[in-house]
Design a protein around this nucleic acid. Structure first.
Lengths: 109, 109
DNA sequence: TTGACATGCAACCATATGGTTGCATAATAT
DNA sequence: ATATTATGCAACCATATGGTTGCATGTCAA
């Protein structure tokens, strides 16, 4: 589990996870292109980040020819909440988050 | 939110959060003593870790005389899951985790 | 085969991180 | 008042981290 937390500690890697959540099965090149709009870096840098995410089991990969497709795995992230938030407490926090979202939505009118 | 992820990246700080979850309102000295059984370090090191957790809003503090009491704040942790796990997906993962826990419980018999 | 494209590996470098020691400040107990 | 206890601040140091460049490997198209 330590690798998961270490992996999530970098803002660039979190952006990569965001991107994989919004669209599954992307290649290194595609992800690199997307990073240009957030934190421009070399292809090798992105590759390193993806390797770290993969070792942490936060992304699963699939080779297709010369391409490597990346997929988000949400399971380790889900386990984080379970560590410090009790079953009882969770309902309370869920309700609170939902309320907050509702109020924010109203303000946008 | 970046501070939250950075704060969670260190194993010692996660142990501190565990300890605060199991018992609220502990002082630096108490927490330091508990760390001896996991990752022994100086008082100043523990103080630094607690400062990082506090700045990340993962622990709230309260001065009482010369003591400083520390409390776990679960809100930022809860927000992590909301970032990459959809409302729909969460139910699925909850059920899966519960099933796993049940099976593990049975194996311990 | 040959050229182009997609990824992999390794060396190198600046800075961030986590630890230490030493001293300072503030509150309690005698 | 003085000693003790609890915490705060700062300098310093070794290693981890995130980035770069350069070259190697593997796959598709002509």
């Amino acid at each position: 589990m330590d690798m998961v937390f270490k992996a999530l500690a970098d803002p660039g890697r979190r952006i990569l996870l965001d991107r994989l959540r919004s669209q599954s099965g992307q290649t290194l090149g595609q992800l690199r292109q997307h990073m240009n709009q957030h934190a421009p870096m070399s292809r090798q840098a992105v590759a390193k980040h993806l390797a770290i995410l993969e070792r942490a089991n936060l992304v699963a990969t699939l080779r297709r020819g010369r391409e490597k497709l990346h997929y988000l795995n949400p399971v380790p992230i889900h386990q984080i909440g379970q560590r410090w938030i009790g079953k009882f407490e969770r309902g309370r926090l869920d309700a609170l988050a939902e309320l907050k979202q509702t109020l924010e939505g109203e303000n946008h009118g």
